[in-house]
Simulated scan of single mutants.
Amino acid sequence: MTAEASETTNAEEPHVVVRLTRMLWADKFAFCAAIFLLAIVILAIVGPSWLGDLATKQNLRGRNAFPFDWERGWAWWMGADALGRPLFARIIVATQNTLMVAAGAVAVSATAGTLLGLVAGFASPRVNQVIMRLADVIMSFPSLLIAVIVLYLLGSSILNLMLVLAITRIPVYLRTTRAEVLEIRERMFVQAARVMGASGKRILFRHILPVVLPTLTTLATLDFAYVMLAESALSFLGIGIQPPEITWGLMISQGRQYLTNAWWLSFWPGLAIIFTTMSLNLLSNWMRIALDPVQRWRLEMKGRTNG
């Protein structure tokens, strides 16, 4: 192929952002999930400054106000809680804490687990055994039980909750990364890099890690939903984030005593959790295909047809 033909081919290839957008548009469920998650992230950023005062302002005359009462104003269309605070404003403000805990826990656990998994899969058998026994110790205890004990002893706060959930999820990334490294290190391009004199650190981070990242990205998307549900469960049990902070799980917990006469207090935050976790699962399924070179062509062909 001549240089001119190569330049023409490269010019005709769309930008990577355009390719990803086309592949996302090819899967309508994943596209809707991405739009919903983008809206959730925007609300988490601007929500507290936009509706923070309204979410904490009490109005005892409007206790447990019924939803869809448009005469009160747009902020009350989901109803009000036991202290007369609008549920719509509180759900938006609670989005930041809910996503902050989940994102922080996933980031810490993914980083620590990936680094330990890279070392365990590439280092000597003795180091591998030590790291894997550490993972076995963590996995020998139920994750929620560890969270309950630690939060009871150290107290409930956003930082403590984030760290506890992160520690319980480290073995997931550690085992996944180690399994991938054990297979990838035997491939020809790794052997070639070793023969050419590349250091172990360079082989790990320049040759092996980029191959492992797609799998870890899909895993992190799924784990984000799991951690968010775990935080909601802990808040529901009363050992998660405590007032005056707000999370979706805490709102469900506060509304459970009114389920018989004010079901909407727990229904709306529960619906927010359901939609968010479902969107994460749909996007994770799309990412599994889009990041796989063997299956990616299906989305690319469908995207070109729809385009």
Results as ranks from 00 to 15, higher is better:
17 V>W: 14
21 T>I: 13
21 T>Y: 08
22 R>S: 14
22 R>Q: 08
23 M>D: 02
23 M>N: 02
24 L>A: 11
24 L>P: 08
24 L>Y: 13
25 W>S: 04
25 W>D: 04
26 A>F: 12
27 D>P: 04
27 D>G: 09
27 D>M: 04
28 K>A: 12
29 F>Q: 11
29 F>K: 13
30 A>P: 11
30 A>K: 08
30 A>T: 11
31 F>W: 06
31 F>C: 14
32 C>S: 09
32 C>H: 08
32 C>I: 15
33 A>I: 10
33 A>K: 05
34 A>D: 00
34 A>M: 02
36 F>P: 09
36 F>Y: 14
37 L>M: 08
39 A>M: 09
39 A>N: 02
40 I>V: 15
40 I>H: 06
40 I>P: 11
41 V>T: 10
41 V>G: 11
42 I>H: 00
42 I>G: 00
46 V>D: 01
47 G>A: 03
47 G>Y: 03
48 P>K: 06
48 P>C: 02
48 P>Q: 02
49 S>F: 13
49 S>R: 12
50 W>F: 14
51 L>E: 05
52 G>E: 01
53 D>E: 05
53 D>W: 02
54 L>I: 13
56 T>S: 13
56 T>D: 06
56 T>P: 00
56 T>R: 07
58 Q>D: 07
59 N>D: 13
59 N>Y: 00
60 L>A: 03
61 R>Q: 15
62 G>A: 10
62 G>W: 04
62 G>Y: 02
63 R>K: 15
63 R>P: 04
63 R>E: 14
63 R>Y: 06
64 N>G: 00
64 N>C: 06
64 N>H: 04
65 A>I: 06
66 F>R: 12
68 F>G: 08
68 F>V: 11
69 D>H: 06
69 D>F: 01
69 D>V: 11
70 W>K: 15
70 W>S: 15
70 W>H: 11
71 E>T: 15
72 R>L: 09
72 R>H: 05
73 G>L: 01
